[in-house]
Design a protein around this nucleic acid. Structure first.
Ligand SMILES: [Mn+2]
Ligand SMILES: [Mn+2]
Ligand SMILES: [Zn+2]
Ligand SMILES: [Zn+2]
Lengths: 152, 152
DNA sequence: TATAATATTGTAATGATTACAAATTAGAAA
DNA sequence: TTTCTAATTTGTAATCATTACAATATTATA
């Protein structure tokens, strides 16, 4: 209870600090991203908030996300064709997509030590890492041989 | 001259070896990807081949690329929202996108040595790396201070 | 050459995102 | 609290990339 309120206050301040009016819709979108760290799509966010906000428009989700991205509070993930996802974590971290369940996991990676060849004289601003494979849950649940045979 | 012919023969064999009929359009698409390592978009490929093949349809470009991807001869790059690109290199390598000129460069990276936390029990199949910043050409050409001030 | 299988083409359909203007809401001022 | 104005939300239309589909053309083989 208290945590919920505190959290909402934090989110409100987060918006205010970035000169973004803390409207009901914006608070709900940011709260959803904070509570559901699943790198959701626009569709997922819209569908999840629709019960609470029956007048909600999908355009508002797009507008809000673009506003949040511009302010650096959210970042966009385009790890695969035809699915754009949104991440409330903006610090450097890697992403793993499970080919079986489709879930996207965060992982920690230190790219500072990685050696690269062919970028002499280049100025690097961002480093993104994207892995894919089968997550531990899917490996446990499903039959090992089955997964091994699956065409990837 | 001779190299061109040889190259075309190689491309034809490449298709045949993968049970893909070496049609005129397919040869031209693959040849373009081989000769122009710029990670082109569908639009770029279409536009470049249109002079040679006036009857060319954009659907053919899509069909051909999907066929080549399925055969593992080409891979798709979705390093940024709203631009899908295609790469004839299918071996593991990194990509750098210049925020100034928009060009995408290949670079060599050894991901085997990279340490990650949070993927215990995961089976990893692919590892992709995507950097962004300013390329050496743009740094040389433009005024340093100007680039530094530019909002990224 | 004749035939059947496959590829190409043009057009229509789909789906995600954006543009835009009207309606609503939030925040400051009175 | 009420009023006023600017910002936000909403619904609809427009745009753009990609795919579906059927007709036409091409290829491989006999
Ligand atoms: Mn993440
Ligand atoms: Mn490449
Ligand atoms: Zn999984
Ligand atoms: Zn550049």
């Amino acid at each position: 209870m208290k945590d919920m309120k505190r959290n909402l206050e934090d989110i409100t301040n987060k918006l205010k600090n970035n000169n973004i009016r803390p409207s009901h819709q914006r608070l709900k979108v940011l709260e959803f991203l904070d509570n559901n760290r699943i790198h959701p799509t626009v569709e997922q966010i819209y569908h999840s908030l629709y019960d609470e906000i029956p007048t909600l428009s999908k355009t508002t989700i797009y507008n809000t996300l673009n506003t949040l991205i511009e302010a650096g509070l959210v970042r966009i993930l385009t790890i695969e064709d035809n699915e754009v996802r949104y991440d409330i974590r903006t610090d450097t971290h890697g992403h793993f997509k499970c080919k079986s369940c489709g879930n996207i996991y965060d992982f920690e990676v230190d790219m500072d030590l990685v050696e690269v060849k062919g970028l002499n004289g280049f100025r690097i601003y961002t480093k993104d890492v994207y892995f894919s494979g089968i997550c531990s849950k899917c490996l446990e649940q499903e039959d090992g041989a089955k997964i091994f045979d699956k065409v990837i």
